[in-house]
């Protein structure tokens, strides 16, 4: 179970411990945690709702993890992405990558996030003082994912 899409919050320490349980070959653990910000594109955000495509979202995340494992010599990966309604400061996403050395762990963690942002079917809607709005995709996310294709 390397990938989960869930409404519930997660405990970062517990997830790292579970990933490392029984292993003595790991020398580096890189993690990324994404949080709900209280401001986006100049507006206050007091809540965010995440929608997904059940089935495809999990498959897309599994595929991204498989690509990372094919590309770097990493030992274990855990990805959790929350859905439903979240408040500012709530955790949204967690990526944990365990490897023998930090270089692979850092790179794979960033790759997984960059691909998740452009390939995994999630959509955010923000509640702002001006009303509710769907978040637009950012070109900077496309270019962040694109650079991995150029051997970067």
């Amino acid at each position: 179970m390397s990938v989960s899409v869930q409404q519930a919050d997660f405990d970062i320490g517990a997830e790292i411990d579970a990933l490392l349980a029984g292993r003595t070959d790991v020398g580096a653990v890189a993690t990324f945690t994404g949080l709900v910000r209280d401001v986006n594109d100049g507006s206050g955000v007091h809540a965010m709702t995440l929608e997904h495509y059940p089935g495809m979202t999990e498959a897309a995340l599994e595929d991204i993890v498989a690509q990372a494992k094919a590309r770097w010599d990493i030992l274990a990966v855990r990805v959790i992405h929350r859905v439903g309604t979240l408040q500012p400061a709530d955790r949204i996403v967690l990526v944990v990558v365990a490897g023998s050395h930090r270089g692979e762990a850092f790179a794979a963690c960033e790759f997984i996030m960059d691909y998740l942002k452009t390939q995994a079917p999630f959509w955010k809607r923000e509640d702002t003082p001006e009303g509710s709005r769907w978040v637009d995709a950012r070109e900077s996310d496309d270019s962040a994912a694109e650079r991995w294709k150029q051997g970067g």
Binding site: L50, G55, M56, A59, H81, Q119, W123
Partner: peptide
């Protein structure tokens, strides 16, 4: 069938097709 696809992708009987805006997760 739950894989990203381009406009020229083939569609056959029994398939599941989905349309959506660019994704904004993470």
């Amino acid at each position: 069938n739950q894989r990203m696809a381009e406009p020229d992708a083939a569609v056959a009987d029994g398939d599941e097709v989905a349309f959506f805006p660019p994704v904004t997760g993470g």
